[in-house]
Write a protein that binds this DNA or RNA. Structure first.
Lengths: 213, 213, 213, 213
DNA sequence: GATGAATGAGATTTCATTCAT
DNA sequence: AATGAATGAAATCTCATTCAT
């Protein structure tokens, strides 16, 4: 949803501040539990203004969410393009590492993504999630197709299912960086970049060789 | 939380119906958004009754959740015990297949588990999540330890990280059975048992051999 | 209100127990805040029984309150009759001391009286309070009339107003025995019989001689 | 509790009207039985408004109560200061008369004070009661100490106990002005200023000379 | 006579949304 | 354009009372 003209007439500073606080609120509380009251009191502006800028709660959410997801997509696209000449597993490592670094810089945005992923009654939830998943799968398929062309992966490998495994493992790893209960003592949650590199190396290794003898 | 005496005095039929509708509501809307109003109107009983049975919303939730999680644990325990003599990858297949069958019979319960996993302000959330994760990790570690003793897995394999990969892939597969956006056209969502068996076979294969040549 | 026949058919033991618990509940919480739920759960009987015995909450209250006030009146009557031959100030001392002893034996009943005195929406409140006050004033008037006949008090004393002063001081003294905030460090609240005797002596003295030179 | 900014932005008229109705409601029904529903329907405003002004029922109560008690204290302070040069019994008369006049102007406030005094589960009840009692005792002790210095009272008089008697009689007299059951035909309740003056004169006289010959 | 499950009115509280200023 | 007072639906929860067993 496009914010109303009123919002676009604001100073870039104010626009940015409103967006940031809104993303924070939705990220901390999800959509239904997020409170316009809380947002305006954190912003120090009048409640009516939000409705003038975005029409309603839903409009604010869609706007804040789109902004956030575009940041993610921009970032991923950069990684993909910059590693084009590397082999698959190096690229996977680079992708995961890029995720870790993005997380450190924008923890709020990743949390927002997780909230939306697991909350039901969200405006345009289906469209949002479908678009995200397609983006992610396309990303991995590109990597695997490139790798197949270079003979880096087993010829008989089912690309779809391999995509699925990559998506599952890598998504879960990033989630465990910020959700302590997914870590449960494994040492992923809240650790530094160095520890993350070691985990990534090991995970990529397992993905390459599997568990069997 | 143990339901009050009044609830235990109800007919088994009524108890079962109330439990089922409550699990459905929490499963569909999560804890905060679930509405006692909605539950009682679906049940066709008076609002006060629920409070006589469970004291408050939290009591109802804890009860419904415990019932559900015990069903899951009972089921998993059976699978583990019945496959004790098999090799690791057969056991993993059996586990996933058992998950699929459980899901077909009780889709609502798996949804409930997912909601709880990703909602923030839930009663006893920390206790719940810790208990669930410990249960899951212990399950996989048992399987891997058995397999290591039998020389079924690579000697140098890091058990912790292998657990993590198994957990991530298998959890995601089951999620994709009921969450269309996690499937995104791969053909996992809402398909029959036969298709699931093929996916499972392939996934287990990838887990055994990895992606590399 | 007379309890229904069902109640009168109960064993004296059970009748007494129900009355006692009801008085305790009303004494602790007042009329509106008293809870039938709480009463029946303390009694361990069915909720319906109370309504079979007394019709409704109001009926139970009137019954419990009447029983209590009759105990007070019986006690006062005994004191008055047993001190008939003493002089006024000895009788006042005896009355106050009797009050203190009654309080020690039946603190719950005095509390009940205080609650009712200051709660508004009570069934038959006006009738109850009028009857109590009349009883109390009649009591003091009897004492003062006896004393006037014996020349123990000033001839020109206005009996009505003297009654008022006696009532005010003596009531407040007993209240301060159980309401800490009325004591506020004076040493009346919750002290033993010996200390009460000294206070009574001093108060009677002030009542006899006044504050002036 | 300080009311929120919204309340302070209302017109003085509206503020005053809300305060008055709230004091009336608490005064008539006490804290627990007072109903926000009732208050807003008397005011003809929306239920949510009260919560915007005061946060919750407790906040409204504390506000209404503080406003009321400050009116009382201001009034008493004026009386004390204006009678500083008079003798004790004149000052007591002035105090009582001031009480009577305050009562005529603000009967609701005195009722509120009484309700709070005898209701148990009130927010900040302990703090409130301690503060009130200390204020009252300090007031009387000041008067008696001044009088002792001027030789107006018996040398051996126990100041504490004399305070107690004064407090008891004067408080009860004011209560009987508005609580018919405390009057019971004595002619205090609801009578004019002239009758009050006569009662006060007589009461002060009894307090000075006592009942005895 | 005793039971206790069922009821529903009414309490406090939250919050997105509207709209007059 | 900005404000923030006003609103009212809906949430959780309590409890006296009824009535079938």
């Amino acid at each position: 949803m496009i914010p109303f003209k009123t919002f676009q007439n604001l100073s870039k500073d104010k626009q940015e501040r409103i967006t940031r606080i809104a993303v924070e609120e939705f990220s901390e509380k999800g959509y239904a539990q997020a409170s316009i009251n809380s947002i305006v009191s954190r912003l120090g502006i009048a409640k009516g203004s939000i409705f003038q800028y975005f029409g309603n709660k839903k409009g604010l959410f869609i706007f804040a969410f789109n902004i956030s997801m575009n940041m993610v997509k921009d970032y991923l696209r950069t990684v993909r393009d910059q590693t084009r000449s590397e082999n698959l597993f190096t690229r996977l490592e680079a992708t995961l590492l890029a995720g870790v670094i993005f997380l450190q810089k924008h923890p709020v945005i990743y949390r927002l993504y997780i909230r939306i992923m697991f909350e039901y009654e969200i405006p345009f939830r289906n469209e949002i999630l479908l678009s995200l998943r397609e983006y992610s799968l396309k990303y991995f398929r590109t990597l695997l197709t490139d790798a197949a062309a270079n003979g880096e992966i087993r010829a008989k490998l089912d690309i779809d299912k391999a995509c699925f495994v990559l998506d599952a493992v890598m998504d879960r790893f990033l989630q465990a960086k910020i959700l302590p209960h997914l870590d449960a003592g494994l040492g992923i949650y809240n650790t530094g970049e160095q520890e993350a590199r070691e985990w990534i190396k090991e995970l990529t290794d397992i993905l390459r060789t599997g568990l069997g003898i």
